[in-house]
Design a binder for these strands. Structure first.
Lengths: 222, 222
DNA sequence: TCTTTGCGATACATTGTGTCGCTGTCAAGA
DNA sequence: TCTTGACAGCGACACAATGTATCGCAAAGA
């Protein structure tokens, strides 16, 4: 008995400062902190070793809590990742909402929100969304560069666009490969559409984005 | 000895027809078939139980081979999924290449390739790419609907676009939520950009796609 | 001071992971 | 015809990860 007590006591001593000393604040606050620590640790581990290689054991050790304790917070790695993902988007959403509510001319608000969103996307080059289905590759081999086949896909479209630009059919103020990336991403929206008509509108939308802009780029210039 | 021989023999009998009888064709062909069967089974299991819950054991059983044998083909679930993903894109690429090489007017080829790509995206509503980072959610809970926060994000942008459309600043021939989806996807391309200038061009590109189209939608009309 | 509350840890049974070594089949050459 | 090298396949073993059941202990309130 005294032995186990000793062991427990020493293991408490061994705690890093990551997790609050226990009942340091109210229990609710404590739980929230542990929860967040778990989310952070999991994101870090996922980025480091790849999503598929993150284990509950690793997470628990990294956070500095017992593995069984972790199960009192989350039932699985999957659930943790989902929660983390939700938190990410919520954060983005909050930021963008603030921007949208600034008192600025209506058009300017749209421009600023979209600009901010683009910056957010740019930031997280890890866990990045790639052209069309690449979430798999992106998540599976964390650090990996774009899959070769994917690159060839972009090259194919890029070549078509370069030809079209040379013929004057599409704008030439943006490099063809950027146009290609734009197209492939934009058309990725087709995955979440319901009707065929919506897909057609999407394609039209994308194609018209490739056109040379009108003389008056008032909205776009900001 | 005779016992083990018997066991082996009977286990051969027990084989389902999925995997060819062994040396039925050349070894290379056989291996290719097994490989493909593994890829198919894995994709199916991933779609069914979620990517994180696919195990080598399951795959082996599903294909009808021993688990140890599976390891002679692939070292990990991750490797299988990557290979599957590469195969998918390669298939898409081949289809699109064929379309691109048809003898048609240059502009029409671009339109057709992009249209075909949109259709491909539309098909695979499972394993789908969602707006911006949703690959996580999309893959983690296979059947799940879009994460709530994500929907709110689209709603936010959709509302801004609706206002702008009412004010005549953006086109009104496409529903605002479709425009929002288009924007978010298109800006997702920012994740793979390198320079700030490229991000700015991307934002401009996206914004100009929201403008009312010009009188002459020659290219777009096809 | 003593009870209540609920967090955290140890322990255990189950399932999954890599790997090793053996068996059996085929094709080629003695 | 018989031997031999190459190679696919499987069983089994040692170890890691997973969930769960049970216990001990710290803090808050009477």
């Amino acid at each position: 008995m005294s032995l186990s007590r000793l062991i427990v006591a020493s293991s408490y001593r061994a705690y890093p400062s990551r997790v609050p000393k226990l009942w340091r604040d109210t229990i609710a606050a404590h739980r929230r902190e542990v929860r967040d620590a778990v989310l952070d640790a999991t994101a870090r581990l996922a980025g480091q070793h790849g999503v598929l290689n993150v284990t509950m054991s690793q997470i628990a050790e990294d956070v500095g809590i017992g593995r069984a304790t972790l199960y009192k917070y989350f039932a699985s790695v999957e659930e943790i990742l989902q929660t983390w993902h939700e938190r990410q988007i919520s954060d983005h959403l909050q930021l963008l909402t603030e921007i949208a509510e600034r008192d600025a001319p209506q058009e300017a608000r749209l421009v600023e929100v979209l600009g901010a969103y683009a910056q957010i996307q740019r930031q997280r080059t890890d866990h990045a969304a790639h052209p069309h289905g690449s979430e798999l590759a992106a998540l599976l081999h964390h650090d990996a560069q774009v899959a070769p086949a994917e690159r060839r896909l972009r090259d194919l479209v890029g070549a078509l666009l370069a030809d079209a630009a040379a013929a004057g059919a599409v704008r030439d103020d943006v490099p063809p490969d950027e146009l290609a990336s734009f197209c492939l991403h934009a058309l990725g929206a087709a995955a979440s559409t319901t009707s065929d008509a919506a897909v057609q509108r999407l394609v039209r939308l994308t194609l018209e984005g490739l056109q040379r802009p009108r003389q008056d780029p008032a909205t776009a210039g900001t």
